[in-house]
Nucleic acid binder design. Structure first.
Lengths: 116, 116
DNA sequence: TTCCATATATAGATTATCTACATATATATA
DNA sequence: TATATATATGTAGATAATCTATATATGGAA
């Protein structure tokens, strides 16, 4: 399997799809969850997330629906589609392959003995 | 520790510095080694590598010297500097922190129970 | 009422990587 | 011998992911 170059930077998509696999969420909530789960070391910026969500929806990976709470405020929830689940599986494999590769370089191991 | 955003895409620098920690190498050789170690799934492009090497040298992370073989061909070898080793240590920590975070999202675990 | 948190959105800048091209030598093959 | 392929380094311009900055609007707290 060739490693998709977009993964090198694009792990944000992987994270978003994974969150939505668990449950429907709205954008601001995703930012909060990711910040909390990383102990505040990682924070996805709103200016990164919203265009990404629009793009994923355009590609048919996720769907959106407005949820009217009792107040005037409207939250835009997203759900993952079947196609999106396929993309998630793919990106998870790529993530695993790429991190295995980098870790092999960083820590050596059986393949490190290979002649160069 | 806040995760340096440049790591999300910039793991190439980490790989290069790690290779040079082991031994001096020339550019084309780095490309070959990384390709081989990844079982041909990853290939760093020359157009990516050479500007990156020039940049790292400009920053004082690596030094270069020409090695004249008996033939007319000249290979440009690079060695890592003390400063470069510092950068390598930093980037290794960031790599570890970021991959731990993503893996926590992907696989759940103790911190997964946190309330959102 | 004023400030901060919540919530979504877009424009423009930055940066890493890519493709494509250029140059030159070494080696293998037709 | 000629020609293609591998080795080796380099730059220019394009693409894509993310960022900062800005805009808008509501809810709640000081």
């Amino acid at each position: 399997m060739a490693i998709n170059k977009s993964l090198l930077s694009g792990s944000t998509t992987l994270l978003i799809l994974k969150l939505l696999e668990d449950k429907d969420m709205y954008g601001y909530q995703m930012i909060e969850v990711l910040t909390n789960r990383s102990d505040n070391t990682f924070s996805l910026k709103a200016g990164t997330l919203y265009p990404l969500l629009h793009n994923l929806e355009h590609q048919g990976m996720i769907n959106s629906y407005d949820e009217n709470t009792d107040s005037a405020r409207v939250r835009k929830y997203y759900s993952i589609t079947k196609k999106g689940k396929g993309m998630l599986a793919e990106k998870q494999n790529e993530w695993k392959a790429y991190t295995s590769f980098v870790n092999r370089i960083l820590h050596g191991g059986v393949n490190f003995a290979k002649v160069n």
